[in-house]
């Protein structure tokens, strides 16, 4: 978990949380999630200081989150700012909107990028009415 964190990035906390959630999944849940997503996201996040950090969300084989570039070719690479990612993760911004407004750039399968929403949401327990 701690190895996911990168100082100076708000995103790192979110991703660490995501990793925790995926770690706590049992095999069945993990399989379901992998089946649903079936792909690898590479996130290239730039913070205000202009530093870049790279994480990978592997929802194709291992169902895990790790720091650094994807070990295998990612289905999509998402390039965005730290702020944007935070908003995305919190659900304040939706991916398509971010893409339209140029806050989010993609490399690779753009359509697949829309699945990131689902992955980020999966990590969150919904509040009950």
């Amino acid at each position: 978990m701690s190895d996911i964190k990168v100082d100076g990035f708000k995103s790192s906390g979110i991703l660490a949380g995501l990793a925790t959630v995926f770690d706590s999944y049992n095999d069945e849940e993990k399989k379901a999630q992998i089946k649903k997503t079936n792909g690898i996201f590479e996130l290239r996040v730039k913070n205000m200081e202009g530093q870049e950090a790279v994480w990978t969300i592997d929802m194709k084989t291992s169902g895990s989150v790790y720091k650094g570039e994807s070990k295998t070719k990612p289905n999509v690479t998402l390039i965005m700012s730290d702020e944007t990612f935070q908003q995305l993760a919190e659900g304040k911004l939706d991916g398509q909107k971010a893409f339209m407004t140029g806050k989010l750039k993609t490399k690779g399968n753009m359509m697949f990028a829309t699945k990131l929403d689902g992955v980020l949401k999966a990590a969150k327990t919904k509040a009950k009415l």
Partner: peptide, 17 residues
């Protein structure tokens, strides 16, 4: 109250919730 809170939280505003 809880429903308002839950709606807010689900909308990405846990703070306000």
């Amino acid at each position: 109250y809880n429903r308002v809170g839950a709606t807010l939280a689900n909308n990405g505003n846990p703070e306000e919730a």
